[in-house]
C-alpha cells in the first residue's frame, strides 16, 4: 500500500492554526527574544555610538556589573528600597482589592455609580495627570501649607493621628506592625489608584463562584465569617496568583530602579550600565515572582 501523501485533515487544520499565531511569533522573536539577548550583550560591553547612527560594542566583561554594585552612588540603595516597597505594597494591594471586590459585588443602591467611580483610577493613570492630582489632593485637604507630610494631612482634617498611634502602642501592639498599618493608611490613595485592575479581576472571580455553594453553607448554618474563609477565599485563591503577578509587574514598572535605569540610559548616555541595571533588577523581580507564585500555588485549591 502506498503511503498517503500530504497532510492529514487534522494536520492541515493545525498548520492553519499556526498561521493564527504567526504574526505574534515573528514579533516576539524580533522585538522580545532578540532584544533580551541584546540587553544581555550590552550589559557585558562598552557601547559607543557613531555619528551615522550605528554603534560599536567593545567587550568589557563584568566591569559594568562590578561598577554598578561597587562604585555606583545610588544603585544598590535604590534597588533595595524599590524591592522592599514592592514587598510591602503587594500584599496590601491584593487584600485591599479583594476586600473592595467583595463590597462591590454585593447588591446595594447606587452600585453602578460606585463601580464607575472605582474604575476611574484606571482611566486616569498617566504621569502628568497623576502629579497634578497629587497637588490637587493636598490643596483639597487644607491648602498648600499643610501639604508637608501625609500624616499632617490627616491632622489638618481634625484627626489626631499621634493619639491613635499612642493608643495602639499602649495596647502592646508590635511596633513593626503598627508602622506598617500607619504607612498603609497614609498611602491609602496610592493603594486605591494601583488596585483598579485587581478589583476587576476579583469581581469577575467572585461572579464565577456558583451560588449553590453559598446555599449549602447557609443551610449547614455557617456564619458569614466561616462562609468567607471556607467558600469565598478558597474559590478566589487561583486568581490571587494572577493578581499578585499583575501587581508585582505593575509596581516594578513604576519603581525608582526602573527610572534610574532610564535616566542612566538617556540622560547620562551610559548604555552598558543602564542595561546592567535593567537586567539585574528584572532577574531579581522574576526570582521573587517565581518564589511567591510557588508559595501561593502550594496553598491554592483548584476547584476543577
Amino acid at each position: 500500500m502506498k503511503r498517503r501523501r500530504g497532510l492529514s485533515l487534522l494536520q492541515k487544520r493545525n498548520v492553519k492554526g499556526f498561521m493564527f499565531i504567526l504574526p505574534w511569533l515573528v514579533g516576539f522573536i524580533i522585538f522580545y527574544a532578540r532584544s533580551m539577548f541584546m540587553t544581555a550583550q550590552f550589559s557585558l560591553s562598552t557601547m559607543t555610538t557613531s555619528a551615522g547612527g550605528g554603534y560599536t560594542l567593545e567587550w568589557a566583561g563584568l566591569s559594568n556589573y562590578i561598577y554598578a554594585f561597587r562604585a555606583h552612588g545610588t544603585f544598590k540603595q535604590v534597588l533595595t528600597t524599590s524591592i522592599l516597597n514592592m514587598l510591602v505594597d503587594v500584599p496590601l494591594i491584593t487584600f485591599f482589592s479583594l476586600f473592595m471586590a467583595i463590597l462591590l459585588n454585593r447588591k446595594f443602591k447606587g452600585r453602578t455609580i460606585v463601580r464607575a467611580i472605582f474604575f476611574l483610577p484606571i482611566i486616569m493613570n498617566s504621569g502628568a495627570i497623576t502629579s497634578a492630582m497629587e497637588l490637587a489632593r493636598t490643596m483639597m485637604s487644607g491648602g498648600i501649607s499643610s501639604g508637608a507630610s501625609e500624616i499632617s494631612d490627616a491632622a489638618a482634617s481634625g484627626v489626631d493621628v499621634a493619639y491613635f498611634i499612642e493608643l495602639f502602642k499602649n495596647l502592646a501592639m508590635p511596633d513593626k506592625l503598627l508602622d506598617y498599618i500607619v504607612a498603609a493608611v497614609a498611602r491609602i490613595n496610592d493603594i486605591i489608584s494601583a488596585s483598579g485592575v485587581q478589583i476587576i479581576i476579583f469581581i469577575a472571580a467572585l461572579q464565577s463562584i456558583p451560588g449553590s455553594m453559598y446555599e449549602v453553607a447557609k443551610i449547614e448554618g455557617a456564619t458569614a465569617y466561616e462562609t468567607f474563609w471556607k467558600v469565598t477565599f478558597p474559590m478566589v485563591m487561583p486568581h490571587i496568583i494572577t493578581n499578585v503577578v499583575y501587581t508585582v509587574v505593575d509596581n516594578f514598572a513604576k519603581s525608582d530602579v526602573v527610572q534610574l535605569a532610564y535616566d542612566t540610559c538617556f540622560n547620562e548616555i551610559n548604555y552598558g550600565l543602564s542595561s546592567t541595571m535593567s537586567l539585574v533588577s528584572t532577574v531579581i523581580v522574576c526570582v521573587i515572582l517565581v518564589l511567591v507564585c510557588g508559595f501561593i500555588q502550594k496553598r491554592t485549591f483548584y476547584y476543577n
Binding site: 516576539f28 522585538f31 522580545y32 503577578v245 509587574v249 514598572a253 526602573v258 535593567s278
Partner: peptide
Amino acid sequence: MIVIPTNTIMLP
C-alpha cells in the same frame, strides 16, 4: 511578555 517590563528591552 506579560512579566518582562518594557524597560528591560527599551534600549535594543
